[in-house]
């Protein structure tokens, strides 16, 4: 695995005095899909904007395929395509003109065939002569994607690509992302929709309050931090949890028909066999049982929550 993007000690304090990023270290591998997860205001856009040259960092280094992004900005930026979070488009230009413009801006020679293919892939070809202001929001986002891909970047940033986007575009977008990955394009996307990261990404980074609190291969993350829940469908409903089962943190659900046990699947002793044994000892029978792996969302909420709590106690101290 070769690194295509290396970020070290990156920090940003805006003029307002607000610190949006502090000491971020991150390495992105060539060809991977990386999802940057975090609540609103966590610093995701700031991080992307710094790498793309739109925001000036107050500390740290960024290197794109070995090129320092400040000193060798031409080499670095040529490799990057950006679809920003907001819909920033011209009004009077046509779709074809604005996409061709982007290609030129990045110093690439004209290639009408490539642009045509790009517009077709994004279902924009029929609209190529339409003025951008005549397009719907979803279409405008497609235009922004086309602009970002017009110069055939090796790294694509998608800043909240599916926020407020219709189902169809969302599906097209994922198809496109997969297609790009097959061609070896590295994709870094931000989102606060966990399903998206879970579905798409190879690795996930969680950012909260300007700090990258975790970077992990997705499956490993789910496995490592994943908690499982065991749900037992009881033969007879219970009105309360029997004292004999007090050693397990159990909850009653479904009007007493279900017993729910949450456990750490990675722990030495999960407590499941002993629980089942004890239940049969005291004569609590069950008809059925199932376990569920917690999703990234559960993990994420847990992480950010923990981070907030830590911050709160830190401030109090």
């Amino acid at each position: 695995m070769t690194a295509v993007l290396q970020i070290s000690g990156l920090g940003k304090t805006y003029q307002s005095g607000h610190t949006a990023l502090s000491h971020v270290d991150l390495t992105i591998n060539k060809g991977e899909i990386f999802a940057l997860l975090g609540p609103n205001g966590a610093g995701k856009t700031t991080l992307i904007s710094i790498v793309c040259g739109i925001v000036t960092p107050t500390a740290g280094l960024v290197s794109v395929a070995g090129h320092d992004h400040a000193r060798e900005y031409r080499a670095a930026r040529s490799l990057i395509g950006l679809v920003p979070q907001e819909l920033h488009t011209d009004a009077f230009e046509t779709v074809l003109a604005t996409v061709s413009f982007s290609r030129g801006l990045f110093g690439k020679p004209r290639d009408p065939a490539f642009i045509e293919k790009l517009l077709r892939d994004l279902s924009l070809w029929d609209k190529r002569d339409a003025k951008i202001m005549e397009l719907s929001g979803g279409m405008k986002r497609r235009v922004m994607i086309a602009k970002a891909l017009s110069h055939e970047p090796e790294i694509l940033f998608l800043d909240e690509p599916t926020a407020g986007v219709d189902v169809e575009l969302r599906r097209d977008m994922w198809q496109m992302v997969h297609g790009l990955r097959e061609r070896g394009v590295t994709i870094i996307l931000t989102t606060h929709y966990i399903e998206e990261a879970e579905e798409m990404a190879d690795r996930v980074g969680v950012i909260s309050k300007g700090e990258l609190i975790l970077v992990e291969e997705k499956h490993a993350l789910i496995k490592k931090l994943g908690r499982k829940t065991l749900t037992l469908n009881l033969a007879e409903p219970l009105s309360s949890i029997p004292p004999a089962l007090a050693d397990w943190k159990l909850e009653l659900a479904g009007d007493g028909h279900e017993l729910v046990y949450e456990f750490d699947s990675q722990a030495e002793a999960t407590g499941v066999p002993s629980l089942l044994r004890r239940m049969s000892d005291i004569g609590v029978g069950f008809k059925d049982l199932h376990t569920k792996q917690s999703s990234l969302e559960d993990i994420f909420v847990g992480l950010v929550h923990r981070d907030n709590n830590a911050a709160a106690t830190g401030e109090a101290a």
Binding site: C52, G53, I54, Y73, R74, A75, A76, R77, S78, I80, L82, P84, E86, H88, T89, D90, A91, S102, L105, F106, G107, K147
Partner: peptide, 14 residues
């Protein structure tokens, strides 16, 4: 004003 300057700032342009 429109925000499209992001593209110019992110382009390999001196």
């Amino acid at each position: 004003w429109t925000g499209t300057i992001y593209e110019m700032l992110s382009a390999p342009l001196s």
